[in-house]
Amino acid sequence: MLTDAERLRIEETFALYESRSASAVDGLLIIQQSRGWVSDEALADLAQFLAVSTHSLESLASFYSMIFRHPVGRHVIMVCESVCCWIAGSAELTAYLNDRLSVGLGETTADGRFTLLPVVCLGACDRAPAMMVDGRLHGPVVAADIDSILSQYP
């Protein structure tokens, strides 16, 4: 079931478009903001609410990389893999995070604290290599800084 608050926020987006179905991506993002991710059940509820098929909503959700279809950790780390970060050593950064957190890209730590995701550009090319944790940008990040950055996100 969608909560009343979610329903209300989704309804607010109806005014943005010519058709209700256009609110699909916003709906997914709204659910994700309140629950952290979009479960099969939530997706089905949203499909019903917007009067679209579950199948088409599913395909939509899988198209956009910022829609999470699996539970994510309390904090989401996005490591930029865009070219500037790449030439500045983002691969080492990722390797360090993989090692430190014992997770691969797209995975969540066993304690549910962090999810590690790749991202194509954070627009922080001047601070390469960069990463974003819960919407906050860090950069340039060297492996030696990572532990202290992570400690800011309990």
């Binding site: 478009y17 058709s19 256009a22 991506v25 916003d26 956009y64 990389s65 910022m66």
Partner: peptide, 20 residues
């Protein structure tokens, strides 16, 4: 607000994306 897809910067894709 976008939802993470580089190709959406292309104008016709962007309009598709607004249409949901």
């Amino acid at each position: 607000e976008g939802a993470g897809a580089f190709v959406c910067g292309e104008e016709t894709a962007l309009m598709q994306s607004i249409e949901g």
